[in-house]
Structure formats: C-alpha cells, structure tokens
C-alpha cells in the first residue's frame, strides 16, 4: 500500500506533464489564429477561415484539459476563511467531503458530456456557420477526457491522502510574513 501510494500519483503526474504540454500548444495556437487573421485581412485581403470557431474550440480544450493538473496543485478555488480556524482533523475531513462531492458531480458530468460527444459524432454535427465544415465532435470529446482525468486525480487524492497538496496553514503564513523583517 505504501508503495502504491507513491507510484500511482507519480505515474499520473507523468501523464499530466504531457497533457499540460499539449494544452500549452493549443493555447499558443489560439493566439496565432487570431494574429494571422488580423494580419491577413489587413495586409493580404485574406483572413483565416473559421478563425472564431477554431478559437472557440481551442477554448474548450484550454479550459478542460488542465483541470486534473490543477487538482494536483490544490489549485481549484475554495473559501478557507472559516475552516482555517478548525482543527487539522476536521479540515482533512472537509477536504474528503469535497473530493467525494467532486467525484460524484463531475463524474456525472463526465459521463453525460461523453454521451453528448458521442451523439455529435454519430450525427456528424458540423459546427455552426463553419466555412470549412469543421466537425464539432473533437472539441466535445476533449471535455469528458479532461473531466475524467480530473476525476481520476480526485479519486487518487481520496484513496491516498498523502498525495493531497499541502494547504499552507495560518501558522506557516505567519512565519512567511516575518521573513521580510
């Protein structure tokens, strides 16, 4: 068990690095598409066809792919104003509750959005007003992938509490604050 609690999170992090690298590439593409389109229409009378659509689809990827990585950093938004004053044990229990709820609801969202992506593929849905007849399913398929990967990370944190990111306590923060003086 002790070995698993280290090797499993480590394996997941290795995959995460590749997911993040891919997301970085897509984010950079988002910039490039708009830039080329503006330069193209201004100087060469030719914009990138479906530029807005491509950006929208990349947006979907940029939002959903990094969610699991964010979870590993403890990066999702939470309000700790009150819970910081509670004992360590209670805080840890609340984090567990949050993970359970997260797995339940985002697990459900994973399944339902996968169904939507499948439907989109089956119907051969073309993105609205696409000049290049871009299919919608690839962008839609990234959603359940990103969400599922997030759920896997939450499950691992649920099963192996040692893999949860450390929450900086008030005490640590107080220590940090005195560093400057």
């Amino acid at each position: 068990m002790a070995r698993l609690s280290e090797s499993i999170p480590r394996a997941i992090s290795a995959v995460d690095r590749q997911v993040v690298r891919f997301s970085q590439l897509l984010l950079a593409m988002m910039v490039v598409v708009t830039f080329l389109s503006v330069v193209g229409r201004t100087f060469f009378s030719q914009a990138v066809p479906d530029d807005l659509l491509i950006s929208e689809m990349l947006m979907v990827a940029v939002v959903f792919l990094p969610m699991g990585y964010l979870q590993s950093l403890g990066g999702h938004l939470e309000v700790t104003v009150i819970t910081d004053h509670l004992p360590e044990k209670v805080q840890s229990a609340l984090v567990t509750v949050g993970l359970v709820l997260g797995v339940v609801f985002f697990g459900l969202m994973t399944w339902l959005s996968a169904r939507m992506a499948w439907e989109s593929w089956e119907f051969g849905v073309i993105a609205y007003a696409s000049a290049l007849d871009l299919p919608e399913w690839p962008a839609k398929a990234l959603i359940p992938l990103g969400l599922a990967w997030w759920c896997v990370r939450m499950l691992v944190q649920l099963v192996f509490p040692s893999s949860r990111p450390g929450h900086t306590s008030e005490f640590d923060q107080a220590l940090d604050e005195t560093n400057g003086y």
């Binding site: 910039v31 950006s55 689809m57 947006m59 979907v60 959903f64 339902l112 959603i143 969400l147």
Partner: peptide
C-alpha cells in the same frame, strides 16, 4: 442530466470568453 451534459460545451465554446486567457 440533459442540461449537465450540454453545459460544459455551451458555457465555454464562446468566442468572447477567449479574451480572458488571451
């Protein structure tokens, strides 16, 4: 369920939102 399945795409695939990451 139907709403939850559509939600992730319909609430992010929106051009005006791309200004935020940009």
């Amino acid at each position: 369920n139907s709403f939850l399945g559509d939600l992730p795409y319909s609430s992010t695939a929106e051009y005006t939102f791309t200004t935020i990451p940009m």
